[in-house]
Structure formats: C-alpha cells, structure tokens
Computed example of a mutant assay.
Amino acid sequence: MAGPDGPAIRAAVADDESALAELDRRAWSPRHSVQPRPQPPYGTFFTDRNLPEHILVAELGGRPVGYLRLVPATPLASNAHVQQIQGLAVDERARGRGVARALLDAAYARARRAGATRITLRVLGPNTPARRLYESEGFAVEGVLPGEFLIEGAYVDDVLMGRGLTR
C-alpha cells in the first residue's frame, strides 16, 4: 500500500530487525513508553512474543520510518474478534506525513482479514498527540487505570481505547 507521496506499508520481515530496533530507540519517550529508557548494549527488536508477523512497517524513500504491532487481544476463543495495537512508533523526522494514519488503516484491514470486528489499544494519559490521533480515527476512551505506571518519578494513567471495525 502506498500513496504517491505517502508511506508504503508492508509486513515486517526478519531482515528489518536492526532498522526497527534503531527506530524504536530513536522514538523512545517517557510520554508513550512504559519501558525504561534504552541503554547500551541494546537488545533486539524481535522476540518470541514480538514476531515479524505481528508488525506492519511504514517506509518512505525505501527506509523504515514507522511500525505498528497488531496482535490478538488475548488467546481466548471468546475474544478472538478483538485485535489490539500494542505499539505504534513513527520516526520524529517522518512525523506529519501521514505515517501513523497509514499504519492504522493497514491495521484495520489486517484485523478485518483476521475476522476481527473490534480493535483496542492502550495509551498513556499524558500522550495527548496520540490520544487526539486515535480519537480522530474513531477510537473512544473505554476506561482509565489511574496512576497505573510510575514513569520517571511520576504516576501516569493508562487509557484504554477501542473502536469497531465496521466503518
């Protein structure tokens, strides 16, 4: 998928490991990550729980500038109709170019192909730009876990958001 000037979206492959790991380090911020600030020696991007088939990659000019991780919300059969976004990152140098929206559109299509009728995510309370983006995409706040995370000395809310996949 690609627009004439927009990002191309594709499935990740194992060879994306180093580029996505570097992108993840550059994009890290306490505004959106519950993980500690990355420190050398840096780990890998793909793990046994974070497989290439979970990741959509956005490219501009042939280089990865963003990714989205989409997985089943739980392993339960009764919840198989729900997919969950568990990570969305865009290189600061590529922001404002439609990368996040293109990744979200690709995630909706992938989730529908997997039989999902609903998509959910979690976002940190102070991450206002992400919350505005998700709201503009039809996500609604469905719950808030107050003070769920202690990040760099401050308690931060975990905001649960979701939307149907009928639109």
Rank of each mutant, 00 (worst) to 15 (best):
Met1Ser: 13
Met1Cys: 10
Ala2Trp: 11
Gly3Glu: 09
Pro4Gln: 12
Pro4Lys: 11
Asp5Gly: 13
Asp5Ser: 13
Pro7Tyr: 03
Ile9Met: 00
Arg10Thr: 07
Val13Gln: 10
Val13Asp: 06
Asp15Asn: 09
Asp16Gln: 02
Glu17Pro: 04
Ser18Asn: 12
Ala19Pro: 01
Ala19Met: 01
Leu20His: 04
Ala21Thr: 11
Arg26Gln: 09
Trp28Thr: 02
Trp28Leu: 03
Ser29Arg: 03
His32Phe: 09
Val34Ala: 12
Pro40Asp: 04
Pro40Trp: 02
Pro41Cys: 06
Phe46Ser: 11
Asp48Glu: 14
Arg49Gly: 12
Arg49Tyr: 12
Asn50Lys: 15
Asn50Glu: 13
Val57Gln: 01
Glu59Ala: 01
Glu59Gly: 01
Leu60Asp: 04
Gly61Cys: 05
Gly62Arg: 03
Val65Tyr: 04
Val65Met: 01
Tyr67Glu: 00
Arg69Ala: 06
Ala73Phe: 11
Ala73Asn: 14
Ala77Met: 12
Ser78Phe: 10
Asn79Ser: 13
His81Ile: 08
Val82Met: 08
Val82Gly: 06
Gln84His: 10
Gln84Met: 12
Gln86Asp: 11
Leu88Lys: 00
Val90Met: 00
Arg93His: 11
Ala94Leu: 04
Gly98Phe: 03
Ala102Leu: 02
Tyr108Asn: 11
Ala109Leu: 14
Ala109Cys: 07
Arg110Trp: 03
Ala111Leu: 05
Ala114Met: 10
Gly115Pro: 06
Ala116Glu: 09
Thr117His: 14
Ile119Leu: 15
Leu121Cys: 06
Leu124Val: 02
Gly125Pro: 07
Pro126Val: 01
Pro129His: 00
Glu137Asn: 06
Gly138Ala: 07
Phe139Lys: 09
Ala140Arg: 15
Glu142Ser: 09
Gly143Ile: 10
Pro146Leu: 09
Glu148Arg: 15
Phe149Cys: 07
Ile151Tyr: 02
Ile151His: 04
Gly153Ser: 08
Gly153Ile: 02
Val156Lys: 04
Asp157Asn: 08
Asp157Ser: 05
Asp157Thr: 08
Val159Phe: 02
Gly162Asp: 07
Arg163Leu: 07
Thr166Glu: 15
Arg167Ser: 13
